[in-house]
């Protein structure tokens, strides 16, 4: 059962969609990082898989997109805005809060402000 930490981890949505992404990108989220922490050694750390019971596939896909977007641009300035569909904004914002990704929350807030939701 015990498995080595891998370079890639799997995120699973509440409706069963699986997203494989780089560990380094995923652990930007405080929650995911702790979930996969080999020292604490929870089930997620052993299987390198995180299942989110409260995030659906659409939102999780956007989350993953953000995680890569963040990974890609983390050292740059003047990065292009990420495209966030207005209808996803609220749910994304909550997901960001849940996952403890401060930069993610900020991005969502900006997008929401654009669409006039907040």
């Amino acid at each position: 059962m015990a498995q080595q930490s891998t370079d890639y981890v799997t995120l699973v949505s509440s409706d069963g969609f699986e997203f494989k992404l780089q560990r380094s990108a995923a652990t930007v989220s405080g929650a995911i990082k702790r979930m996969l922490d080999p020292i604490s050694n929870f089930t997620e750390a052993q299987t390198n898989t995180c299942t989110f019971e409260n995030i659906n596939g659409v939102v999780l896909e956007k989350v993953c997109e953000y995680l890569y977007y963040n990974e890609k641009h983390k050292n740059n300035k003047d990065v292009p805005d990420m495209d966030i569909p207005p209808e996803l904004c609220l749910e994304l914002l909550m997901a960001a809060d849940f996952l403890d990704g401060e930069s993610c929350t900020a991005v969502c807030l900006i997008s929401n402000a654009d669409t006039g939701l907040v």
Partner: peptide, 15 residues
């Protein structure tokens, strides 16, 4: 015995 536990679940409860 933490290896039996799912972090996500506990975290979600506390959340």
């Amino acid at each position: 015995n933490a290896s039996k536990l799912s972090y996500e679940e506990l975290y979600r409860h506390a959340y």
